[in-house]
């Protein structure tokens, strides 16, 4: 079968149109257009092929599998329509996962944003050891997620380093079962995620700050603006695009967060809904409970939520920055 397909489409070589009795101008123009199309097709085919193979086809399969009651043995045969989707929204643990994702999305934006902005503004000033500070702030982001997860797990263990630190500071009363108390664990995880990803926000903002023309801040200073006023009225507005892009990346990352949660929070705590996210819920149910059809349904829900959030964000917030690329120009 494959061989006939191959023979129907001979590989390689752009055949040049036979030279001869056609009007030269039109023929060459047509040849030009054709050449351009060959070029476009030839150059984009590899990328499109990879995209189709590894993005679109798996997505299609996920949707297909999600409509079946399927345990991953043999081909899916038991078609159940949208049952897996309704089951997911009836499962209190999945709703808990949605809530946890929301906490992480908004928590990350509200905590990382201001903290990163403050640190970036500080690190943008000239002082001795600035490069070292910039490096230190970025270190957590470079560490692998699994490393971060295990590290914090060991630090936060009962009577571990963190509890000892609190006690030595006279704050023994604040000690919690950081990863065991079902009401505390999601905030512990939010803290770890913030610690890990704030460096990324800072680096982005520093890059944005380096694009703020020096003349503007200088002009503001000459006009008698204080440092605060300069930041508020000159730097911040010019940082807008960077902040918006960071918020976008942070939001999508928070919706899909998996590794730190998976490593730091044990299965029992996840299964009680205290710390699981949509992604960990998907793996716990898809692979561990061997509900492959159901797991695919959760994957599709996760995709739709992320996709809609991304579209809305681009439509209403990133609009100014990517005018024309995704959205139509107003009027």
């Amino acid at each position: 079968m494959t061989s006939t397909d191959q023979t129907r489409f001979p590989a390689g070589g752009v055949s040049t149109p036979p030279a001869g009795h056609r009007p030269a101008g039109r023929a060459s123009r047509r040849a030009e257009t054709r050449r351009k199309w060959y070029e476009i097709v030839g150059l984009t085919t590899p990328a499109i092929a990879v995209y189709v193979m590894f993005v679109l086809v798996p997505m299609g399969f996920a949707v297909y599998y999600s409509l079946y009651r399927w345990r991953g043995v043999g081909p899916p045969t038991d078609y159940v329509g949208l049952r897996n989707y309704t089951l997911a929204f009836q499962d209190p643990i999945f709703l808990d996962a949605l809530r946890n994702n929301a906490i992480i999305v908004f928590g990350s934006l509200l905590i990382q944003g201001p903290v990163a902005l403050g640190i970036a503004l500080l690190l943008n000033r000239r002082f001795r050891g600035r490069a070292l500070f910039r490096l230190l702030v970025f270190v957590p982001y470079v560490l692998a997620e699994v490393t971060v997860g295990i590290m914090w797990k060991l630090i936060l263990v009962e009577d571990g380093t963190f509890d000892a630190l609190l006690k030595s500071l006279g704050l023994g009363g604040l000690v919690q079962a950081w990863l065991a108390d079902l009401d505390v664990v999601i905030w512990t995880l939010l803290f770890i995620l913030t610690w890990k990803y704030v460096g990324f926000a800072i680096i982005l903002l520093l890059a944005g700050l380096s694009n703020v023309p020096h003349e503007l801040t200088e002009a503001a200073a000459i006009d008698g603006a204080s440092w605060w006023q300069t930041q508020r009225h000159v730097t911040l507005p010019l940082l807008g695009p960077t902040i918006r892009i960071w918020a976008f990346l942070s939001m999508i990352g928070s919706l899909q967060v998996f590794d730190v949660i998976w490593v730091t929070s044990v299965p029992a705590v996840r299964s009680l809904g205290a710390s699981g996210t949509m992604a960990t819920y998907m793996v716990d149910n898809g692979f561990f409970a061997r509900l492959w059809g159901y797991g695919n349904a959760v994957a599709v829900i996760l995709f739709v939520i992320s996709f809609v959030a991304a579209l809305l964000f681009q439509r209403f917030i990133l609009r100014r920055d990517i005018e024309g690329a995704i959205t139509r120009r107003a009027n």
Binding site: R71, A268, S271, L272, A289, R290
Partner: peptide, 20 residues
């Protein structure tokens, strides 16, 4: 009982352990 019932059973038992 297989992974599907097994996981649900274990999750339920963990519920008893947690007091919930």
């Amino acid at each position: 009982y297989g992974s599907t019932v097994g996981t649900a059973m274990n999750d339920g038992i963990v519920g008893i352990f947690s007091g919930k």
